[in-house]
């Protein structure tokens, strides 16, 4: 499998505090990879450097071998990278379908169109995408009335709308009920399998992580302390040390 994303000794410091300290890793095509770590480990910082929200203090990010360090989020998106946020960012004043259509309009570079009626554009495509996340029956509801889990799925549909090869998901199941989490991750796993795309996600819920991730990276105090398959990570003594306080996570994971 070829490598799609590579981070090379990424560093980010805030006023001398190193939030991310020399992290290197790669994501391969068709891979579902998780980035975990305790609170304050630097997951979000690390993630935001990949998506362009933050500029690394040093280090590089490569997409299919091309350097994308410091590019803006919208440029990275145009290179075929989709992303979702920990706190959903949908357009409250638009309908569910229009949220997806907005992404399609952007993808087809028709943002500066002054003639057409926007809600007529790419509606069929948008409904297809909504069907793939089981939201098509809510297509014409105002986005502002959606349940939280539905919003998360809508965000996934939006992120998939420009047929990305890589999906970066920040806490895709945060704030959802446990059963919904499993469903959500199953959905993501299906998409990965069907479309052959790669996913890198951060996650708090170890059930989700160990049930679905092909590979897991563990971040602690800004440093990567483990990177491998579920079994290897679970047995890594350094990881065990970090998660000593939260050992229940591993118990549950083993039970699962």
């Amino acid at each position: 499998m070829t490598e799609i994303l590579r981070a090379d000794t990424l560093r980010k410091s805030y006023d001398g505090f190193l939030a991310v300290d020399g992290v290197s890793f790669s994501v391969r095509e068709g891979e579902l990879k998780a980035l975990i770590g305790p609170n304050g480990a630097g997951k979000s910082t690390c993630f935001n450097m990949l998506t362009g929200q933050l500029k690394p203090s040093s280090g590089e990010v490569f997409l299919r071998g091309a350097r994308i360090t410091g590019k803006r989020p919208r440029e990275i998106w145009r290179l075929g990278v989709g992303r979702t946020f920990q706190i959903t960012g949908t357009y409250a004043s638009m309908s569910v379908a229009e949220n997806v259509q907005m992404a399609l309009i952007s993808h087809h570079r028709r943002l500066f169109g002054f003639g057409a009626r926007a809600w007529k554009l790419y509606r069929a495509e948008a409904l297809d995408l909504l069907r793939s996340v089981a939201l098509d029956d809510q297509a014409d509801r105002p986005c502002s009335v959606l349940a939280y889990g539905d919003l998360k799925r809508l965000e996934l549909a939006i992120a998939l709308s420009h047929r990305p090869r890589l999906l970066l998901m920040d806490e895709p199941t945060a704030g959802m009920a446990p059963s919904a989490r499993i469903d959500m991750m199953q959905l993501v796993a299906d998409v990965v399998r069907d479309q052959g795309l790669s996913v890198l996600f951060t996650e708090h819920d170890m059930d989700v992580v160990f049930a679905h991730a092909h590979h897991i990276m563990v971040l602690n105090r800004g440093k990567l302390i483990a990177d491998g398959n579920a079994e290897a990570v679970r047995n890594d003594p350094r990881v065990q040390e970090v998660y000593l306080g939260g050992g229940t996570l591993f118990k549950e994971a083993r039970d699962a």
Partner: peptide, 25 residues
Amino acid sequence: IHAPFGYALRAGRDSPRQAEAMGIN
């Protein structure tokens, strides 16, 4: 307002972060 441009403008108002993350300048 009803055209794609109007929608893009509204997207930028509703959630500038999401708009930037879907290629909208």
